[in-house]
Amino acid sequence: MDDHTLAATLASRAGALLLDIRAQGGAVGDRRSNELLLRLLAEARPDDAVLSEEAADDAVRLTRDRVWIIDPLDGTREYGEPPRADWAVHVALAVHGRPTVGAVALPGADLVLHTGSPLTVAPASPGPIRLAVSRTRPPAWVDHFVACLDATLVPMGSAGAKAMAVIRGQADVYAHSGGQYEWDSCAPVAVAAAAGLHVSRLDGSPLHYNQPNPYLPDLLVCRPELAGVVLNALLR
């Protein structure tokens, strides 16, 4: 099984488990999904390192070229509010710090988007730019962005759900600041880039993974034709 298929298979299996145990709540979901993913990765890729939101960070990953970066349950709040579907499972592989393989499962929508079979980005929608933002913690600059670009807001939960919303044609831009970690964005970035979207930091610089400090606070995913105008607005 190649890495792309493995990522998709693992994300799908974790998503199915999370659906089965959803009534037990987010804490149980985080733990059980993490246990499953770590076990399956150890079996399938025993020589690779893993960085997980739900496991202690092992510095051995800094000595490895191949590091799986996983978020066993992205959007724990939304997962705990059935029947919301804006939560996800992230499984990614960074090679030399680059997000080369990724899968984002959206179990509530019965979807797994992955780099092995990239989706074609949905056609542009007429009307104002649609900005996917956190439904509970929108960035402080949102009002400025909306004013600059005459944008409208699309609130939702998981970072993975927001990034995939751009691929699926539900939003045009996902921009985030104010605190994320590598596991929040690695899989969504890999999948979005494979689909042809623009991915970067908010200042336009590249995203690097498997860093000593996994804190990676900001992110931009958007339709490629909007990258210039969006970056200009963000840098004002």
Rank of each mutant, 00 (worst) to 15 (best):
P128C: 08
I129N: 11
R130G: 08
L131M: 13
L131K: 06
L131H: 14
L131F: 13
A132W: 07
V133F: 03
V133W: 00
V133T: 10
S134D: 14
S134R: 03
R135C: 15
R135V: 08
T136Y: 00
T136R: 01
P138Q: 03
P138D: 03
P138F: 00
P139M: 06
P139V: 00
A140V: 07
A140G: 10
W141R: 10
V142L: 15
V142F: 08
H144D: 10
H144N: 04
V146Y: 02
V146C: 14
V146E: 10
A147N: 07
A147F: 05
A147I: 00
A147M: 07
A147V: 00
C148T: 10
L149E: 09
L149N: 10
D150M: 02
D150E: 12
A151V: 00
T152C: 13
T152H: 08
T152S: 13
T152E: 13
P155D: 08
P155C: 01
M156C: 10
G157W: 00
G157C: 05
G157D: 03
S158A: 15
A159N: 06
G160V: 10
A161N: 04
A161H: 12
K162F: 01
A163T: 01
M164Q: 12
M164K: 06
A165P: 06
A165D: 07
